[in-house]
């Protein structure tokens, strides 16, 4: 199925992005090259729709990704013709085009200086601030990116996307407690985001296992991860990622035979007793196998899952099955 041009294309596979960017000539031809903003012309011509501009933006992103700069430039020209050079969103797209064009680090430095100049004139330009952070990160200057993000969040603390990016920056540096904190902030802003609950659970699971954290913090992270995964399947039925994480965590807890420690702190969430964990593990196994079975049979109403995710679930189940046989 050809992906829709109305949604941001950043999560698409390369093949889908290519398909989108191949639509570029047709889309550019079928829509008028300039749309006048004057109210008089709206009387005589069919009015513009917001969809058109969303299409141009997404087309621009796909074309940049696939290296079709001619079409990308055309999209940008139309956006500029409609919204003007000083529109913040358009400025960010212009910067993006320059970043994509940059051949070596000198060019990137120049783009960065332009961003700094724009921010000196107007330091509340959020799209450009975000581009600057992304560029810093892309150039490998991660600490600077992190501090710029913290600054951005100081004057715009309700930006869930920025909190999520901050979590990712910290996570890439191995700073698990900070990453968990930032993602919790994003969750406060979007409490129903089931994928973020699962993502936080994954982070906490990694924090518990990767660092070899001893004793208390291991228990704490495991308990938190368990809580997050159960929450994600509470607000989303048949959520593959949530059940996958739940199975990972409960198997690990059962294998390590972690004893639920009595915490003095009332607010602290502790691991439930072994029978509950076993029941959760059984539930996750049953649900995962149900999902895998239905997806493999291509049953109606079960085809929406990601193929790679289902394959991972199948692998996890088969690993578990062979462990039982032994």
């Amino acid at each position: 199925m050809v992906p829709s041009l109305l949604h941001p294309p950043s999560q698409l596979s390369p093949a889908a992005a290519l398909q989108l960017s191949q639509q570029a000539p047709a889309v550019l031809q079928s829509s008028p090259s300039t749309v006048s903003a004057s109210p008089l012309s709206a009387l005589f011509r069919t009015s513009e729709t917001p969809d058109l501009w969303a299409k141009y933006e997404n087309l621009l992103l796909s074309c940049l990704r696939t290296g079709d700069e001619v079409a990308a430039r055309q999209c940008l020209e139309r956006l500029v013709a409609r919204f003007g050079d000083d529109n913040e969103r358009v400025m960010a797209f212009k910067g993006l085009l320059k970043e994509a064009d940059a051949q070596h680090n000198g060019d990137l430095d120049r783009v960065l200086k332009e961003y700094d100049q724009i921010l000196k004139d107007n330091n509340t330009n959020i799209p450009i601030t975000k581009r600057r952070i992304a560029l810093l990160r892309s150039m490998g200057r991660v600490p600077e990116a992190a501090s710029a993000l913290v600054q951005l969040l100081q004057f715009s603390p309700t930006d869930a996307e920025a909190w999520s990016e901050l979590a990712d920056v910290y996570f890439s540096q191995g700073l698990y407690p900070q990453a968990v904190y930032a993602l919790e902030e994003a969750l406060i802003l979007a409490p129903n985001a089931w994928n973020i609950h699962a993502h936080l659970g994954e982070m906490q699971y990694m924090a518990a296992t990767a660092t070899g954290a001893a004793g208390g913090s291991y228990n704490k992270y495991m308990a938190e991860a368990l809580k997050r995964f159960t929450r994600s399947i509470e607000i989303c039925d048949d959520y593959l990622r949530g059940y996958y994480g739940l199975k990972l965590v409960t198997s690990r807890v059962l294998k390590d035979a972690v004893k639920p420690t009595k915490q003095a702190d009332e607010d602290e969430f502790t691991l439930p007793d072994t029978t509950t964990v076993e029941q959760l593990n059984e539930l996750a196994t049953a649900k995962l196998s149900e999902i895998v079975r239905h997806y493999t049979a291509q049953d109606l109403g079960w085809r929406g899952y990601d193929e790679l995710e289902v394959a991972a679930a199948r692998e996890l189940l088969s690993k578990d099955g062979s462990a039982i046989e032994r």
């Binding site: 950043s10 992103l61 990704r65 993006l96 996307e161 990016e165 994003a186 994928n195």
Partner: peptide
């Protein structure tokens, strides 16, 4: 689709050079 997907893909922070290289 999932309206919260943007929190993981973060279109405001895309690293276009990395995406181009991957492509």
């Amino acid at each position: 689709g999932n309206p919260f997907r943007f929190l993981e893909t973060r279109p405001g922070f895309i690293d276009i050079r990395k995406q181009r290289k991957e492509f």
